[in-house]
């Protein structure tokens, strides 16, 4: 059995990369991909800890929930991206800044 630390490090790396992507990339698609990375980092942590704490199923269940959630989120988010593109003829996330007004 692999030690837990490896999974946790991997999860953390994925999370940090996801956040980095979301914060730095201008393209909305990249931002979405960053979000997927964060979700998958969380799912990986759930599975790893479930396995570590006596092969329990509730962690696995959460992972499946997160996958479904990610799918739904991707659908909704792509819809939003389409609307943004419709509104501004671009998918640059730095363009919609009216929240600051």
């Amino acid at each position: 059995m692999q030690p837990l630390a490896g999974y946790v490090f991997l999860g953390t790396a994925m999370f940090v990369l996801g956040v980095f992507t979301m914060v730095t990339r201008k393209n909305a698609i990249y931002v979405l991909m960053g979000a997927e990375l964060i979700l998958n980092a969380a799912a990986l942590n759930f599975v790893a800890f479930a396995r570590y704490m006596g092969n329990r199923l509730d962690g696995q269940m959460f992972a499946i929930f997160i996958i479904i959630l990610a799918a739904a989120e991707a659908a909704v988010a792509l819809g939003i991206v389409l609307q943004i593109h419709h509104h501004f003829p671009s998918i640059d996330v730095s363009k919609p800044d009216r929240l600051g007004d």
Partner: peptide, 9 residues
């Protein structure tokens, strides 16, 4: 309060 989503994140 820039309005930029990425800054908020």
């Amino acid at each position: 309060q820039t309005g930029n989503l990425q800054d908020y994140l």
